[in-house]
Each structure stands twice: as C-alpha cells, then as structure tokens.
C-alpha cells in the first residue's frame, strides 16, 4: 500500500514512493495483496490505478505495432505475457473490491467514511447494488411479511438500531510483514506491547494494525 493513494497525496510523495519501491506493478501487487487479505475495503489507489491503466494501454498499442513490424515473434509473445500478468493483477484488484462492495453494500451505504475509500465508479456500483438488493428483498419477501418485520436492515420494528447489516469483521486475524522497524506499539484491547523488525512475519489482530496498513508500514501477506 504504498502511496496514500489519490487525492490526498502530493506528486512529490508519489515520486518518492515509486523510487523506493521500484515499479508501479510492484505497488499494484502490494495493493492487491493487502486488499485480498484485509477484512474491510481499503482506500482506492486512485493515482496508482490511473498510472497502471495508462501503462497497460501503452503496452497494448506497442504490441499491436510490433506484430505489424516484423519483430521476432518470441519477443512479441514475451511482451504479451508481461501484459497479461499486469492485466491479471489489475483486474483481480478491481474484482476483489467489487466482491467486498457486494458483501457489505448496506454497511457502505450507511457509512460515509467507508464510502470515501471508494472510487467514483465504485460508489455508483455500491449505490446501485444496495438499491437493487433493497428492491428485490422488498418485492420477493418483505412485502409479504407482517408490518413489523418489513425493514431491510432491522430485524423488527422494535430494534432500535439497524441490526441486520453485515459488517466487515475487524476482529479477524491477518498475516502481515513489517516494512521497517516498528517501535513498541500497543495492541488494540490489550496491555501487550509489540515490536516488529523489518520483514518479520506475524499473525495479528487486524484492528491493531489497521492504520499501519493504510499508512503502508505493514504489508498483509
């Protein structure tokens, strides 16, 4: 999770991140792994995705040109393989996010902070998803239930809160690796202090390292 991704980060920061962690593909791979391993949806890597999209497009054009210009077919096929790998990562990253959105659509639609982590397109998708699901539940089940039980997010009319919204389990445990030395920090809900050396592997309570994953100090694996 290299860059703070997106709107917030400055160009200088981006350059720095790119320099220390080599290529955008490397950054995308990190983002993809984090996204796959994290229980909740992470912040969308706006600028990274934009760059990757550009590079993929450029490479597609290049390969088309190669094919026409009589370059060694072996070389062309190698370029194609590289492109396929990048595209796979790219699609998989977007897809895993869509799956999370589908899973937590009501949670997202009620929660502006989570919404702010989505891209514009994803926000639209989340909205349509929640609307469609609501309409579907309404038509197929809820309208036939007694009046007290007709809400999509409340078990019954006497529930004070919305108690039927699936939420990401932040209590779950994830496997992670630290990128640098992390001084003793407190683990969420306990008195224990934890120190992490670079590259140290650890199974840990996600809630305790949530911010550090977003900041890029810790990678999920």
């Amino acid at each position: 999770m290299a860059s703070e991704a997106g709107e917030g980060s400055t160009a200088g920061m981006d350059d720095y991140e790119t320099l220390i962690s080599t290529t955008d593909v490397e950054l995308l791979k990190k983002a993809w792994r984090n996204e796959k391993a994290a229980p909740e949806i992470l912040r969308f890597e706006t600028s990274l995705i934009q760059r990757i999209r550009g590079q993929i497009q450029l490479m597609e054009e290049n390969i088309e040109e190669f094919a026409g210009s009589g370059i060694d077919p072996l070389t062309v096929s190698l370029y194609q393989m590289d492109l396929d790998r990048t595209q796979y990562l790219f699609r998989s990253y977007l897809r895993i996010r869509l799956q999370k959105i589908e899973k937590y659509m009501f949670h997202i639609s009620k929660n502006p902070e989570v919404q702010s982590r989505l891209s514009e397109q994803e926000k639209g998708f989340a909205r349509r998803c929640a609307d469609d699901m609501e309409r579907h539940l309404e038509e197929s089940v809820l309208s036939k239930l007694p009046d007290n039980y007709q809400d999509t997010v409340k078990q019954s009319i006497i529930s004070e809160e919305s108690d039927m919204i699936p939420e990401p389990q932040l209590d779950s445990f994830v496997v992670c690796k630290s990128r640098r030395f992390l001084g003793p920090f407190q683990l969420d809900g306990s008195d224990e202090l934890l120190e992490m050396k670079p590259d140290e592997l650890c199974i840990i309570h996600y809630k305790s390292i949530r911010e550090r994953v977003q900041e890029g100090d810790i990678d999920l694996v």
Binding site: S172, F173, V174, V175, L187, D188, G189, S190, E192, L194, E200, L201, C202, I203, I204, H205, S208, V221
Partner: peptide, 24 residues
C-alpha cells in the same frame, strides 16, 4: 493478539492461515 511466525514460507502461511486465524 499477535503471534510471530518468523521464517514461515508463503505456502506454509497460506495453509495455516484459515485455521490459525479462526482459532485466534
């Protein structure tokens, strides 16, 4: 809250992850 599993490899991590994660 945290379990250090130094030097475990990717495949090993992948295999124990579902069990250990849920046990913890």
């Amino acid at each position: 809250f945290a379990l250090k599993i130094n030097n475990l490899s990717a495949m090993e991590v992948n295999i124990v992850r579902p069990f250990v994660g849920r046990a913890l």
